[in-house]
């Protein structure tokens, strides 16, 4: 219950899919209110120096993920750095299929933090505290 998955099939070889996913993330990343740690300052995103990095308009940045596995054209894994006490990981696998590459993303460890009111990931809680928070939302 703590993992979600999403997948798409793209009409290119795994090597190209991996390259576009990583090198061109700034071109395809959806700019939404849930997309950034600091929506007021965020201007871009890139994989750089072993991190997934959110770039800011003032020249600063925040590292949102630490790359654990960089294995083109097969697999990419990063650990979430936003939820400091949680243990969230995101794994993306690239599998050749008829007509292209299946890209499967798995976000694990979601039971280590709660949603906040805006649905944004802000800070970490233990599983027990998260459960209490879930329960507390519904108490009258």
């Amino acid at each position: 219950m703590s993992t979600v998955q999403a997948s798409v099939t793209v009409p290119v070889e795994p090597a190209d899919a991996f390259r576009v996913f990583t090198d061109e993330i700034d071109s395809w990343w959806v700019r939404g209110r849930h997309s950034w740690v600091d929506p007021a300052r965020a201007v871009g995103i890139r994989f750089e120096d072993g991190y997934l990095r959110e770039l800011w308009s003032d020249g600063g940045h925040v590292d949102t993920g630490r790359v654990l596995t960089w294995d083109p054209p097969h697999r990419l894994v990063w650990a979430d750095l936003i939820n400091k006490t949680g243990r969230m990981e995101i794994e993306v696998s690239f599998t050749p299929v008829a007509g292209g590459t299946e890209v499967l993303l798995e976000h694990r460890g979601l039971d280590t933090l709660p949603p906040d009111v805006a649905g944004r990931i802000r800070r970490g809680y233990s599983w027990q505290i998260a459960l209490r928070w879930f329960a507390g939302r519904w108490e009258s």
Partner: peptide, 18 residues
């Protein structure tokens, strides 16, 4: 909510590739 977030991101990735 998290699933919908990633589904949207991957959908945009697919559009970009295509």
């Amino acid at each position: 909510q998290v699933q919908a977030f990633w589904a949207e991101q991957l959908g945009s990735f697919k559009d970009h590739v295509e």
